[in-house]
């Protein structure tokens, strides 16, 4: 179960990071959506583990997810389009 939360936290905050791709115009709702996803990932962690453990998992997952996203941005930015499908791109 905690593995599942791992994936979730990895994929969901990615929404938020999409904001920073040098698109022409980044839709404004992405930022709140990203924060929301981060919140959801916290809840997932809490659901999966003892609270004290959950805090740690979340805090250590965060840098890993962030670095993964940053590396994607540098080497394969196109991949990030997946997290923001076409039908959502309109403003």
């Amino acid at each position: 179960m905690w593995l599942a939360t791992g994936w979730l936290a990895l994929s969901l905050p990615a929404h938020w990071r999409q904001v920073f791709v040098a698109n022409e115009v980044a839709p404004g709702y992405l930022r709140p959506l990203g924060w929301l996803a981060l919140g959801v990932s916290v809840l997932c962690c809490f659901k999966a583990d003892h609270p004290s453990m959950a805090v740690l998992v979340w805090f250590t997952l965060l840098p890993v997810a962030a670095v993964a996203t940053a590396m994607t941005l540098s080497y394969r930015p196109a991949l990030l389009r997946v997290v923001c499908p076409v039908f959502l791109r309109a403003r």
Partner: peptide
């Protein structure tokens, strides 16, 4: 006992 967290520590 939490292997995911252990690996995350290594990553950190």
């Amino acid at each position: 006992e939490h292997w995911t967290l252990r690996w995350l520590y290594v990553a950190g």
